[in-house]
Amino acid sequence: MSTTQMLKGILDGCILAIIKNKEVYGYELTEKLESYGFHSFSEGTIYPLLMRMQKEELVTSTLKKSTAGPRRKYYSLTKKGEEELNKFKLQWDHLQTNVNRVLSNEVEEN
């Protein structure tokens, strides 16, 4: 399985978590993701995700002027988005524990 495929669902949760910390615009968001070690994805993939999140009312956006070039769209988390993030955290913990258990067992059996 490629990292991209594995990443798909997880990226959503990570984006919510980053937006929760601080209101960000698209480019800033990809830089944050990269600084956390996500390098393999195309940066543009976040926009369709953000569009969907906005439709599902997990995030809202405001346009702000920038000193250089076109305006920037800043995203912030809604109440519903926070709930979604908490749900993601629980699911991730669960998944992580299970996967770790399987993997460590495999090592022991070897």
């Binding site: 615009y25 698209g26 480019y27 543009g44 926009y47 070039g69 305006r71 920037r72 769209k73």
Partner: peptide, 12 residues
């Protein structure tokens, strides 16, 4: 979306 991507491409 075009404006958003334009802004992203400029910075990238």
């Amino acid at each position: 979306i075009v404006e958003e991507l334009e802004s992203h491409l400029v910075e990238a």
